[in-house]
Design a binder for these strands. Structure first.
Length: 306
DNA sequence: AAGACGAAAGTGGTTGA
DNA sequence: TCAACAACTTTCGTCTT
């Protein structure tokens, strides 16, 4: 596993945790997110842990982040394809046909769109896998004519949002909106539209997925984070989570966890980081206290402090 | 003075007739 | 297409630390 950073710049700990799914490197001791979305967890070491599977390497994968899928522009234009065997030759014929079908208009649109996608995703420091997915979604959207009547940028933003959700690296609509310069509701609208039209299944995002970033932004400890995870698990069991905004739940759990851990943050601080209001935190927080019998614990805390 | 709390009214989106 | 509805926000007054 290639390590770009060995020690936590905050506390010097070498006890780093690599959250592959989120593409984040986190310090286990102080909870700092050291690297976010910077490591390309590609094929080579993805299967490292799974020894049953042989490691396969098949060269560069087709990539949707290049407008021509990385195939280059000279397929079948020279005579050399005729030296290939039948199977290979057919393959190239198919590719050439496909490429030919991409009209110049679509090609130009894709070039622009993928540049925009790249820009937004690097602004948000998203991992490459999300780029790929978003580009794929955009491709499909173009092919189905879903961009017509919508701005290219908003479709890009919607595709990225969908890709984030699919890869469990949730970004809020606010963040996407800020990065893309598209209004929040517009992003949400195109997101819903393209996922519906393309039949993309999106799991409801898990509040836990938001925690590492919130914890880091609030400079809370790893203890507080695991406490929050614990609370969230209980909350999920008590069915407090369905139908509610995941960010609000994550924020409330984190708020309580911080209190219990003597790392108090104000509701406002947590609310700002999570992109919800204090009121929402209060509501979720109230529910948490009621359902999980945490009141007593908080009272104990207060007594201890005297 | 700042933070926590809660009531009331408003917003944008979903659902179901 | 419209109305009911739930979740969330905004705003504001009151209580607590």
């Amino acid at each position: 596993m290639p390590h770009y950073i060995e020690k936590c710049p905050e506390c010097g700990s070498v006890n780093l945790s690599i959250e592959k799914e989120r593409g984040e490197v986190i310090c286990r001791d102080c909870g700092l997110v050291i690297e976010e979305k910077m490591v390309d967890f590609g094929q080579e070491w993805r299967e490292f842990e799974d020894k049953a599977e042989s490691r396969r390497r098949t060269g560069q994968a087709l990539t949707y982040t290049k407008y021509d899928k990385g195939l280059g522009t000279s397929i079948g234009q020279t005579g050399d394809i005729f030296q290939l065997g039948g199977k290979e030759r057919n393959k190239f014929f198919r590719l050439r046909k496909w490429q030919y079908r991409v009209s110049t208009a679509i090609e130009r649109n894709l070039k622009l769109a993928l540049a925009e996608l790249k820009r937004v995703s690097s602004f948000l420091k998203l991992p490459k896998s999300v780029d790929e997915e978003a580009a794929r979604i955009y491709h499909m959207a173009v092919q189905r004519g879903l961009v017509r009547g919508r701005s290219m940028e908003s479709v890009v933003a919607g595709a990225l949002y969908a890709a984030c959700r699919r890869n469990e690296v949730p970004r809020t609509l606010d963040e996407l909106s800020e990065a893309s310069g598209i209004e929040k509701k517009e992003v949400g609208r195109t997101y819903r539209f393209i996922t519906r039209e393309l039949g993309i299944r999106i799991l409801p995002s898990d509040p836990v997925d938001y925690l590492p970033r919130f914890v880091s932004a609030l400079k809370l400890s790893a203890d507080a984070q695991s406490k929050a995870v614990e609370l969230l698990q209980k909350a999920t069991k008590a069915e407090l989570t369905s139908g509610r905004g995941p960010t609000g739940i994550a924020a409330a759990a984190l708020y309580v966890a911080a209190l219990l851990n003597n790392e108090k943050r104000t509701q406002r601080e947590v609310a700002d980081v999570a992109g919800v209001t204090e009121v929402t935190i209060r509501n979720r927080y109230k529910e948490l206290l009621k359902e999980l019998n945490l009141k007593d614990k908080l009272k104990e805390k207060k007594l201890e402090e005297r």
